[in-house]
């Protein structure tokens, strides 16, 4: 979530007007998702957060690609966006590392928080490995518990 604008908030640097409409659309999507009722089923309890996480991930990715891939925004605007929390700067820091180019969320690489002791999340395992290790080539894994990621290994 972006920070709430107050009087003390610094004015956005030049070029913000160009990306403002897209960011507004992301906001709209988030609002839509947050307004939806959560499922009463225990098995689907996490799915509401998955949607939110997906949109924030997309927004982070958008700002990351704007600065690093398209080189469309200035350094000042990029740091301002990070400070105003339009993007998750910890996640972007991971994306710059090799092997983490498509990482879905930070929780998925923290071994302490994983269900299986001492390992990262199953969504980090490449699809090919999952297929190899499974019986008769059928992969039962669909989405991870943390963020609903369907697989974020760099090789996928």
């Amino acid at each position: 979530m972006p920070r709430i604008k107050t009087k003390r908030t610094k004015a956005a640097p030049d070029g913000f007007d160009k990306i403002q409409s897209t960011l507004a659309d992301f906001d709209l999507q988030l609002k839509e998702v947050q307004d939806q009722d959560a499922s009463k089923l225990k098995a689907k309890a996490n799915e509401g957060t998955w949607k939110v996480l997906r949109i924030t991930h997309e927004r982070s990715r958008y700002i990351y690609s704007l600065y690093y891939k398209r080189k469309a925004i200035s350094k000042e605007l990029y740091t301002w966006l990070l400070r105003e929390k339009y993007a998750d700067k910890m996640l972007i820091a991971k994306w710059k590392k090799r092997g983490y180019e498509k990482l879905c969320c930070l929780q998925c690489i923290q071994s302490a928080e994983s269900n299986s002791e001492g390992n990262t999340c199953i969504c980090r395992v490449p699809r090919s490995v999952l297929e190899k290790n499974s019986k008769d080539g059928v992969v039962t894994f669909t989405r991870c518990v943390h963020c609903g990621c369907t697989g974020c290994a760099s090789t996928d």
Partner: peptide, 9 residues
Amino acid sequence: LDPFSTWKL
């Protein structure tokens, strides 16, 4: 198209 926007939009 807007080059400052996302593909999805």
